[in-house]
């Protein structure tokens, strides 16, 4: 993220700012959830409001990524699309694998919301290896 800020285009810097704007509230809500701050509203209608609140930044982050592509040149646009597709495909493959593992092999249950941080972890891991748009 720091290298994108230092070496990137103005579109990249706007992307970094937007990412922070969406990720900070997402992480804060996740931390509050994991520390039990929302225990009183679990299993109540207010729980749905919290679910919407924590998933809204996910939509925002997708918008930030699409904005980066719209505001960038054709190379950055094609490269970002390729990295995004590979990361999304691998994240889906892991989720499907584990889902069938739970159903067929008694694997322990993992919350489905983990697919989002998993996707970005994979995105960060594969991006350094995807540097060409034509290979």
């Amino acid at each position: 993220m720091l290298s994108i800020w230092k070496n990137g285009t103005p579109a990249h810097r706007r992307y970094v700012l937007r990412t922070w704007a969406f990720m900070v509230p997402y992480v804060l809500i996740c931390v509050a959830m994991m520390t039990g701050a929302f225990e009183p509203i679990i299993d109540s209608p207010a729980g749905w409001i919290l679910a919407v609140a924590v998933s809204a930044p996910v939509i925002g982050q997708i918008w930030a990524t699409l904005s980066l592509m719209r505001e960038s040149d054709e190379f950055v646009r094609a490269l970002t699309a390729k990295q995004f597709i590979v990361a999304a495909g691998l994240a889906m493959a892991v989720a499907v694998f584990w889902g069938f593992g739970e159903t067929l092999a008694g694997a322990p249950h993992i919350p489905t919301w983990l697919i989002y941080p998993l996707f970005w972890a994979i995105y960060g891991a594969v991006s350094p290896f995807i540097r060409a748009t034509n290979a």
């Binding site: 285009t9 960038s72 040149d73 054709e74 190379f75 950055v76 094609a78 490269l79 540097r131 060409a132 748009t133 034509n134 290979a135």
Partner: peptide, 14 residues
């Protein structure tokens, strides 16, 4: 275009 795009063209990555 970006410097990265020029580099990618010159190195035949785009």
């Amino acid at each position: 275009v970006s410097r990265q795009a020029v580099n990618a063209l010159e190195t035949e990555k785009h």
